[in-house]
Amino acid sequence: MRIGVLGLQGDYLEHHQVLRRLGVETVDVRLPSHLEGVDGLIIPGGESTTVGVLAERYGLIEPLRRMAEAGMPIWGTCAGMIFLAKDVGRPQPVLGLMDIRVRRNAFGRQIDSFEVDLEIPALARVGDSRPFHAVFIRAPWIEAVGPEVEALARLEDGTIVAAQQRHLLATAFHPELTDDTRFHRYFLEIVQQASRR
């Protein structure tokens, strides 16, 4: 299995490190040609405007849409979630693959960034559903989800902060910043299922 990590900007190295610890081969994706032979893609945290601008200039948007529509799993963390969303409430280049409405910088500025433990029942699929330690940094949240989207995690006030639409996964927080590999293993399960099809 080969997992690409979009390396245009952001904390892509942290994702590579977690995946390698899990024994997975990773590829740095900065140009369309780097997508060859990739079974799944992670879009890391960073600035979604920067990632969008670069993805558009270097011709990554169309090939990514095509591959996702053909069933390639994609997981976006934070800025990656914004990049996956159909609706981000302002004009900026996005993939528009997931039927979610996302609000950028929803919690406020950096001083409003926080850590909290979340109940994520879906993680039982990787064998362990104890609370997940989630790190939110100038994070977005999900304001609305379409009929095909399942909310995976909510804050205590009901705000959706993780969601899945078949082979597409989005988290407002950063599992790559902690030692807990369950979310990465959860994504790898999705990739495995997709490649069996």
């Binding site: 952001g10 950096q110 960034s113 850590e115 100038r138």
Partner: peptide, 26 residues
């Protein structure tokens, strides 16, 4: 790890984390 039922702000991981999100950028 102790369970954090409530949000905790301004931690080392949150502060260093923002810098991590800026990597590869200008």
């Amino acid at each position: 790890m102790k369970q954090l039922a409530q949000r905790v702000y301004g931690t080392v991981i949150v502060k260093r984390g923002l810098a991590q999100m800026l990597k590869g950028g200008v």
